[in-house]
């Protein structure tokens, strides 16, 4: 059997699959459920300075290309999130599943404080979400938009906590490599890419946008090529591990993401079909693919497209 275990920043994972932030990361019960279904690590829903209800319905739809959502960062605020994370960590530990805690903040100067509060739960990693496309109406341009603002947030969080941090980037920029370099220079231990891709659906019969928030973030199969390119680009310019996320719903998708250079593979929208049981399915398919292709472990697949590209030069 192919070996799916990963050593990620010294953290041991049973397999490379990570529950993506915002998908079932709301309570100890749902995160434990994902862990029992075989996910390698769990990311909690992004928590900010204070409680947010999020946007009104419709907030999410499954369409033929995947999912579009504008949940709007619904969360209880970092202080109320803390006991949720503590309890989750307690439940995940015996299962050998690390907890990644996602944070966001409305203003640059709030990031350090949110990170400090969340760090009390001792998550294995803090993921810094600077790339949600659905809260621009409340918070303005996402920090992921420029290398300067992305770096500033990273610096704030780096100063505040010792726990490893991963900065979550957006795909809709033309200088992704430069942004990745900037956050790593400020001390990011890892990079998560990508967040959802801004988009909208219009109902022609209603002559209206379908989402109450008008625009939302695309995820699922439709964005896989966007995510693969992003991870491929980032992995060429920085040495930190990447949590490659976007459109992964099968074992072969996961293999592609690892070949693009990802250390871990985020999975979110794939839960639309079949719920958390999808993790077991993807792992089985990945094993089967590796067995059939003669890959012993994930390291032998990682970044393979780069190596192949270099061979031909």
């Amino acid at each position: 059997m192919a070996n799916l275990t990963v050593d990620f920043l010294g953290i041991k994972l049973n397999n490379p699959l990570v529950l993506a932030s915002g998908v079932l990361g709301t309570s100890p019960a749902v995160m434990e459920r994902c862990a029992r279904e075989g996910v390698g690590a769990v990311t909690s829903k992004s928590a900010g300075t204070e409680a947010r209800d999020g946007h009104a319905n419709p907030v999410a739809l499954a369409w033929q290309g995947g999912v579009i959502n504008a949940i709007g960062l619904t969360n209880p605020g970092c202080h109320a999130e803390l006991p949720i994370l503590i309890e989750t960590k307690k439940r995940l530990k015996p299962l050998g599943v690390p907890l990644f805690a996602s944070i966001f903040a409305p203003r640059l100067e709030d990031f350090g404080e949110v990170a400090r509060v969340i760090a009390e739960a001792e998550p294995d990693l803090i993921e810094v979400n600077i790339s949600c496309p659905n809260v621009a109406s409340d918070f303005g341009t996402p920090f992921s938009a420029t290398a300067k603002s992305a770096a500033e947030v990273t610096r704030e969080v780096r100063r505040a906590v010792k726990i490893p941090i991963s900065v979550k980037l957006a795909p809709n920029v033309y200088n992704l490599g430069e942004i990745a370099r900037a956050v790593v220079a400020e001390g990011a231990d890892a990079i998560t890419a990508i967040n959802t891709v801004p988009g909208m659906l219009i109902d022609a019969y209603a002559a209206r946008p379908v989402l109450k928030n008008t625009t939302g973030g695309l995820s699922g199969p439709t964005i896989k090529p966007v995510a693969l390119r992003a991870v491929w680009e980032i992995s060429q310019v920085v040495d930190v591990p990447i949590i490659g996320t976007g459109g992964i719903s099968s074992g072969i998708d996961a293999a592609e993401m690892i070949m693009a250079g990802a250390a871990l593979v985020g999975v979110g929208s794939a839960l639309v079909n079949g719920g958390p049981a999808v993790f077991g399915k993807i792992n089985t398919e990945l094993q089967e693919f590796m067995r059939s292709q003669g890959y012993q472990d994930l390291e032998s697949m990682r970044g393979l497209v780069h190596r192949r590209a270099n061979d031909t030069v």
Partner: peptide, 28 residues
Amino acid sequence: TRCGLGLCGACELDETLCARLGLPSGWL
């Protein structure tokens, strides 16, 4: 009910109810 797709977690059934009913906790 928000997403209706099993993604957002809004509709989770109370864990004590799940335990009484023998449902897995985190039942959506």
